[in-house]
């Protein structure tokens, strides 16, 4: 029961603090709360945009959660998703003529493979060379960003646009968008994300590999004594984490833009950390937390439009306060755990 109650309390606290800030800025908190709610759930389009923003957050949240279960901190989801999206777009730009059932599958596989590789590198470095994954994943984010700029601007540049993006992919690559959401780009990536969350739950709690991952995360030395190849498990966990982040590319590239746009992600990879934290690293929790953050992202964008004093920056403050209170809650329980041992 407390497992569910605490994250909810954290959200309420963060929201209260955030509304307090908007109140100081000169807005009625009740008014702000109503706009937030309406902006995120008010119409089928608004709700669609919430789901659109939530979809990549489910993937990155799962990515961080899986690594976390293996005792690893994946800060590299941003780089992994960048390369995943880039790979999907590259396949589409290089072979634009491929027909429908084959094309999206191929591009999707490319996204997963690219993300997996990018996640496996820091996993291998950690397992075999002992260099810390936090440092490596952060640095690989920069490498991914540089690589993406190079490919998008020099190799696959879209000649018809001034925007930094790749050539549009063929029509056969685009996956179905649900018409119900009034034009919001909600695609088959959403059910894919929810299905993936279920698969990750199966993996972590119903398979031997999942058991080994969790064993390594809870006590590496105990796992080694029990005969688990902890190095291999860590590489595998990071590879899975990378592949999950790479899946973001499916929704963005195949389900929305039809090409890779530099800077398309408003830090989905880093928000994924907060999502995993709030979701307690449980797949179901991650889905719920992603929905909340998606709603916040969409809702706060409307605040800018609907209020006099809440600008883009103050919207970010509101989001930050919620993230802060969520992580403070994590810190609190961590300190309590430390106090016990």
């Amino acid at each position: 029961m407390r497992k569910i109650l605490q994250p909810i309390l954290a959200v309420v606290l963060g929201l209260t603090l955030g509304l307090g800030v908007t109140w100081i800025a000169g807005e009625s908190p009740w008014h702000v709360l109503r706009i937030l709610g309406r902006g995120a759930f008010g119409s089928s389009y608004d709700f669609g945009m919430t789901l659109f923003y939530a979809t990549p957050l489910i993937f990155t949240g799962l990515s961080v959660a899986v690594a976390f279960h293996a005792g690893l901190f994946n800060i590299g989801a941003e780089g992994q998703l960048t390369l995943g999206a880039l790979a999907a777009a590259a396949v589409g730009a290089l072979w634009p003529g491929l027909p429908a059932p084959l094309a999206p599958v191929l591009a999707g596989v490319a996204a997963i493979v690219a993300g997996t590789c990018w996640g496996a590198i820091p996993g291998w470095l950690r397992a075999r060379r002992g260099s810390h994954e936090v440092i490596n994943t952060i640095m690989l984010n920069f490498v991914a960003a540089g690589l993406a700029s190079y490919v998008a601007l020099y190799l696959l540049k879209n000649p018809d646009s001034q925007n930094p993006e790749t050539r549009p992919m063929g029509a056969g690559y685009l996956i179905h968008q649900f018409g119900f959401f009034g034009g919001a780009p909600v695609s088959a990536a959403l059910p894919l994300a929810v299905g993936t969350a279920f698969l990750i739950w199966m993996l972590l709690w119903k398979t031997a590999l999942g058991f080994e991952i969790r064993a390594v995360g809870q006590s590496e030395s105990a796992a080694r004594v029990a005969g688990i190849d902890t190095g291999k498990i860590r590489i595998l966990a990071m590879a899975i984490a990378g592949g999950l982040a790479g899946l973001v590319g499916i929704g963005e590239v195949l389900g929305n833009a039809g090409k890779f746009r530099l800077g398309f992600s408003p830090d989905y990879g880093f928000l994924g950390i907060a999502v995993a934290l709030l979701g307690r690293n449980q797949p179901l929790g991650v889905v719920a937390a992603a929905l909340l953050f998606g709603a916040l992202h969409k809702g706060t964008a409307d605040l800018d439009m609907e209020t006099e004093h809440v600008t883009r920056e103050l919207s970010l403050v509101l989001q930050a306060l919620i993230i802060l209170s969520v992580s403070a809650e994590g810190l609190w329980s961590w300190m309590k755990k430390r106090g016990q041992t």
Partner: peptide, 19 residues
């Protein structure tokens, strides 16, 4: 007059639509 500043590249569309 109401002005908004985009937070990400996908936001242009929803902001234009909101107006």
């Amino acid at each position: 007059l109401k002005y908004v500043e985009a937070t990400d590249d996908n936001a242009y569309e929803s902001q234009l639509r909101a107006f």
